[in-house]
Structure formats: structure tokens, C-alpha cells
């Protein structure tokens, strides 16, 4: 018994000291769950085709990733963070406060957010206005005053739509997909009402609350971060709609299809042309102070911005990411090679 105790204590002591001494020799990546499926593919290829160790990729969400990223410099902090939105000013300030001064921003491509439904029924045509009216917490009534959302079926929203109850499965508030959906789709539909648009100038907070508020009476169902679950539910119940990233639509086209929004179908081409209204850019941020300290960062960056990764026929396009135009990509490649900071 004594021996076991002594051995245990010795093991603990030796390990704690050895981990404290050892320099990290692999890249540590955190951040957005939307970028995760893409950055893991690059990480895996990078690990297998070079002599470097495969980077470790954590899915923490854009906000959580930036918080970790900005917590300081040194090998206990991540080198790269993925984000499905641009870094906020407050986050740049937080970074600077903790000594993270030089940050390289890399744009990698686009992601479309689809409003999908079962592939077994006829494709639905929606406008952003329809989406807003169906999902908002408060909507303008007949006299223009704001009332609690009275709509229960799609037909009540727009007579051209089917007479089915409004049931939409979407991500919870922690998700970057939800943020982007609210900003692009809900606000896009909301600002089409003149009375609300006027509010923007007079009372900005109220405008935000009206446009960003999703209904809580069961029409919008928070389905968790697991998009596969949403796909399975949509396939089983044709009346439901679901909100998720384009990559899940691409991988499940035999089960679900994307609704046509403002006359545009969510296809690869329409999103990369910018025609599809609900799409956003994807980024990652690199800590310049770590380049040259942690082995492989430069090579990883070079692999990520290369034509075979994010080019128009690159392998990330096969995984559902929408690539940038070639001229834009070349610019990104040059900026990244030069480690141009924010």
C-alpha cells in the first residue's frame, strides 16, 4: 500500500513538472462550430502530408474561441481561433489588454444558412418578409402598431403558402448560426416594414428588440446544436422547417431541400455569387506572436489558403464550404503569407 501511494505521488509530481516544462509542439485551434468541419479537414491533411503533428481543433463557438484566444500569449493559449463572424471591437481591446497585439485575419469563404424542409414535398418559396412574420415575437398589426405574433399557419402569413402550422427547428442563442440568421434573415425581413424602419432612427434598442426577437410560443423550437437531429426530424415530418448551415444541406440532399428565399435557391453558385440573401463570411484569426514559436503555423496557413483547399474546386468546396472568387483568394493568400495584421 505504501508503495502504491509513493508511486502515485511520484508519478503525479514527475508528470506535472514534465508538462510544465514541455513546449507545445502542435498547433492548438479553437472556435466556431461552423468552421470546425472545414478547419479539421485542413488540419488532418496538413498532419498527414507534412512532418508536423496534426493540429488539435476544439469546437467552442466563435465567442468562446475568441475569449480563449485573447486570454494571453504563450503555449497555454490557442494559436488560431475560427469564427463565423468578424472579430468585435471589444474583443480586439480584450486581446490588446492581455498582450495579444498582432492578429492576422484570414477570410476563408462563405457559408449559406438554409431554411430547409423535407425533400418529399414540393419546394417552398418564401420571402424574408414571410420568415420575419412567421418567426418574430412581435409583428406589425393591421394599423401598423406592434402586436404579439398572431400567425399560426403559413397561409395566414402569406396566402400563397401551404396551410400548415408554423413549426421551425433552429439553433439556440449560443450559436453563431442563430446570430447570423437573426441578423440576415429576420432583420432583412423586418426592415421592409416602413413603421419598423422608422423606429431604427428614433429608438435603436427597440428596433433591435423587435427585429431580433424570435417567438417563444412554440412556433420556433430550439433544437440544440446538433444539426443532424434537425435533418432527421425534417425528413420524418414534412410540415417542419429547419435552420442550419449549407454544408448539412449539401450532405443530406436526398432527405431535405432548401426553401427558395426571395426567388433564389440556396445552391453553391447562388451563395458564392452573393445572390442568396442569407449568407455570411467565415474567418480565422492567428496570433502573430506564436508564428515561428509553435512549429508548423506558417505551413498550416499556407495549406489553408492554397488553391487546392479553398479554391473554387478545392477540397473544402467538396465539404460544403462556398469558396471565394479566385482573385479574392489570391489577395487573401498574399495577405496571409505576409502575415498582414488587423
Amino acid at each position: 500500500m505504501k508503495h502504491t501511494l509513493a508511486a502515485g505521488a511520484l508519478l503525479l509530481a514527475s508528470v506535472l513538472s514534465s508538462t510544465a516544462m514541455a513546449e507545445r509542439n502542435y498547433i492548438s485551434i479553437v472556435g466556431s462550430s461552423t468552421v470546425y468541419p472545414f478547419s479539421t479537414v485542413v488540419a488532418e491533411r496538413f498532419g498527414k502530408s507534412t512532418g508536423f503533428r496534426t493540429p488539435k481543433v476544439e469546437s467552442t463557438g466563435s465567442g468562446g474561441g475568441l475569449k480563449l484566444f485573447c486570454s494571453g500569449v504563450g503555449d497555454a493559449t490557442p494559436d488560431i481561433t475560427n469564427a463565423s463572424r468578424q472579430i468585435k471591437k471589444s474583443e480586439v481591446e480584450l486581446c490588446a489588454k492581455n498582450g495579444v497585439k498582432d492578429i492576422v485575419e484570414v477570410t476563408i469563404g462563405f457559408d449559406g444558412i438554409v431554411f430547409a424542409h423535407s425533400a418529399a414535398v414540393e419546394n417552398v418559396q418564401l420571402s424574408l418578409k414571410d420568415i420575419f412574420l412567421a418567426l418574430a415575437k412581435v409583428v406589425p398589426g393591421k394599423d401598423g402598431a406592434l402586436i404579439e405574433n398572431p400567425y399560426q399557419t403559413w397561409k395566414q402569413v402569406n396566402p400563397a403558402l401551404p396551410n400548415t402550422p408554423i413549426k421551425v427547428l433552429g439553433p439556440p442563442p449560443t450559436s453563431g448560426t442563430r446570430d447570423a440568421f437573426v441578423e440576415l434573415a429576420m432583420e432583412g425581413g423586418c426592415s421592409q416594414f416602413e413603421s419598423i424602419e422608422a423606429l431604427k432612427k428614433t429608438d435603436k434598442d427597440k428596433y433591435k428588440a423587435v427585429c431580433h426577437g424570435l417567438r417563444e410560443d412554440g412556433g420556433y423550437v430550439e433544437a440544440g446544436e446538433n444539426d443532424n437531429l434537425i435533418v432527421q426530424k425534417l425528413a420524418a415530418s414534412p410540415d417542419y422547417f429547419g435552420i442550419f448551415g449549407y454544408s448539412f444541406l449539401e450532405e443530406n440532399q436526398d432527405k431535405v431541400q432548401g426553401a427558395i428565399i426571395d426567388g433564389v435557391k440556396p445552391t453553391f453558385d447562388n451563395i458564392s455569387d452573393g445572390k442568396y440573401p442569407i449568407s455570411r463570411s467565415l474567418f480565422f484569426y492567428v496570433k502573430k506572436a506564436h508564428v515561428g514559436v509553435i512549429p508548423g503555423i506558417e505551413e498550416y496557413l499556407a495549406e489553408f489558403v492554397s488553391k487546392r483547399a479553398i479554391g473554387e474546386d478545392g477540397y473544402l468546396a467538396d465539404k460544403g464550404m462556398i469558396p471565394m472568387a479566385e482573385s479574392r483568394r489570391k489577395q487573401v493568400e498574399a495577405d496571409t503569407k505576409a502575415l498582414k495584421t488587423l
Binding site: V15, S18, T19, A22, Y26, S28, Y36, T40, A43, E44, G47, K48, R53, T54, K56, V57, E58, S59
Partner: peptide, 15 residues
């Protein structure tokens, strides 16, 4: 530990 790790860990301080 919710992370994408490709390399098989060999010791207790590998990811």
C-alpha cells in the same frame, strides 16, 4: 477534451 485529435495519443500529456 471536446477536440478533433487525429494522432493517437501515446502519453498522458498528448492531446
Amino acid at each position: 477534451m471536446i477536440a478533433f485529435v487525429v494522432d493517437v495519443p501515446g502519453f498522458i500529456n498528448d492531446p
